[in-house]
Amino acid sequence: MPLKPEDLATVATLAKLDIPANQTERLRQDIEQILTFVEQMNAQDTADIKPLGSPLERPQRLRADQVTETDQREALQSVTRHTEQGLYLVPKVIE
């Protein structure tokens, strides 16, 4: 299936990926080639087949409804410099 440059731009926006102008055409061709390749699936009739999401199809195990996690905020935030008073810092969102 042909992939138009504007389709690639939409997908890149959804994927939150900035694509430099000089890489757009190469990427568009690659993605188009991959999509064309996977479309071989269409040769197979799958009308009444139930999709399979996980190979073992077992029910998820439940655990007792108890608090098991301890507060690890400091350890988890130790991997970024961009925190203040236990909060993550991002560019200003609200004007």
Binding site: L8, V11, A12, L14, K16, L17, L27, D30, I34
Partner: peptide, 21 residues
């Protein structure tokens, strides 16, 4: 968008885009 563009390599980007599509 820029952190991800700078952080990921070519094949990872291809698969993210195919998957998102």
């Amino acid at each position: 968008a820029r952190s991800r563009a700078e952080g990921f390599g070519e094949e990872v980007k291809r698969r993210i885009l195919v998957g998102t599509y």
